[in-house]
Amino acid sequence: MIKITDLEKYYKTEELQTIALNKLSFDVKKGEFVAIMGPSGCGKSTLLNILGMLDDSDGGSFIFNGEEVIHYNERKRANIRKHNIGFVFQSFNLIDQLTVFENVELPLIYTGVKKAERKKKVHEVLEKMQIMHRRKHFPQQLSGGQQQRVAVARAVVNNPKLILADEPTGNLDSSNGNEVMDLLTELNKQGTTIIMVTHSEHDAKFSHRIIRMLDGQKVIENSLI
């Protein structure tokens, strides 16, 4: 599903240039659950942003579903993103002014799904995430675990082929964290490819494969299955 080759990314300030990704290469197959680990600043989040087509790379190749996407403009990338990729963030990133229902509904609006259909899909996913009873609440009225469940619901409502999770349990206590990991595992079992950045060895054990990074490079790869 994903094949990156010699991917490069630099950050430049006035005085120095930092290498975030240094000729990084790996692939992810359809239906895989991959965890990316490494110390702070090793380039994990940068990688995830490029995979999510939120950021550009400075070199290399990125093939998504057999398509080279590295030189696509913003409009094209937004289009691929909204139909194929769901995001789960450490800080949930829900829109404060929208209710749970409206937050989850948002990706469907952008993909042009009809209203009745949207309602059905949102209800389904909220049921699945066991957050239906909170659908009229605003994010600030929910606990962290509930917020992350909403965020996951939002990420999957469009049935994305790929979920990119950036430390999804980072802001949660262990029981809420486990709940979210169970959710992701379940989604993966149903066929969704998941790439997760994490600091937690515990969380990483839920995946099929761990890619460990240091200074923008892959240093080791452990298969867990």
Binding site: R75, N79, K82, N93, P107, Y110, R154
Partner: peptide
């Protein structure tokens, strides 16, 4: 958030 979900500029 909107951009990451797929909103265009």
């Amino acid at each position: 958030i909107r951009k990451s979900i797929g909103s265009q500029r």
